[in-house]
């Protein structure tokens, strides 16, 4: 990322959120972006996740110039290169665990059966075998987050993007998730985690601080 700027209109005035942010993440890294609320970390995550557009700057993901890519192509990028893990899990309540997990693969044009086949390994890794037919409402917070992680993992993305992954969990479940992140990183996954909690951030191998829209390494 090079000189990223992003602001929102507040009435007639533009409120700058991200100010000239430049940083890079190498393949296989486990980075935590740490900052208090209002520091712009969620906006940064949205830009990294190709869900929001920057006002200026350059962003390359796997060598692809995201700042020049159109929305329709960004859909493809989100599907193939990014795995999202949200604070509040963002599972679709009407689908069961397996149906939630296979979604990114269905969007690649696989049939449900093919996608299900591909997911078995991930489901086993996350210990969700017993839960695949359950609806999200029937799961605990920790289990929901595992489903969310499984959904992010199944497509083998270039980067796992986690927004406050332990924010809604109790301490034990939170620890489990962080342990899982370590494990995933050791397996070669690139992880970028956003948090306001230093303890959580310390589980990452590298911490980047964001204060008032500016990055401090």
């Amino acid at each position: 990322m090079k000189s990223i700027n992003k602001g929102y209109m507040l009435g007639e005035q533009k409120l700058p959120i991200l100010k000239d942010i430049s940083f890079s993440v190498e393949r296989g890294e486990y980075v935590a972006i740490l900052g208090p609320s209002g520091s712009g970390k969620t906006t940064l995550m949205n830009i990294i996740g190709c869900m929001d557009v920057m006002d200026s700057g350059e962003y390359y993901l796997d060598g692809m110039p995201i700042h020049e890519t159109l929305e329709d192509d960004l859909t493809e990028v989100r599907n193939r290169k990014i795995g999202f893990i949200f604070q509040n899990y963002q599972l679709i309540p009407t689908y069961n665990v397996m149906q939630n997990i296979v979604m990114p693969l269905l969007m690649r044009g696989l049939t449900y059966e093919e996608a299900e086949q591909q997911c078995i390994e991930t489901v086993r890794l996350l210990g969700l075998e017993e839960r695949i037919a359950h609806k999200p409402s029937e799961l605990s917070g920790g289990q929901k987050q595992r489903v969310s992680i499984a959904r992010a993992l199944v497509g083998h993305p270039s980067i796992l993007l986690a927004d406050e992954p332990t924010g809604a969990l109790d301490q034990a479940s939170g620890k489990d998730v962080l342990k899982l992140f370590r494990q995933l990183n050791e397996m070669g996954n690139t992880i970028v985690m956003i948090t306001h909690d230093l303890n959580v951030a310390q589980s990452a191998k590298r911490i980047v601080r964001i204060v008032d829209g500016k990055l401090i390494e």
Binding site: G49, M51, D72, T75, E76, V77, R78, N79, R80, F84, Q90, L91, I92, P93, M103, P104, M107, R108, R151
Partner: peptide, 16 residues
């Protein structure tokens, strides 16, 4: 809307 947001985040196209 939230569900549509999730679908979009995980790469569901406008057409779909």
């Amino acid at each position: 809307t939230n569900e549509i947001g999730i679908l979009k985040a995980i790469g569901c196209s406008r057409k779909a």
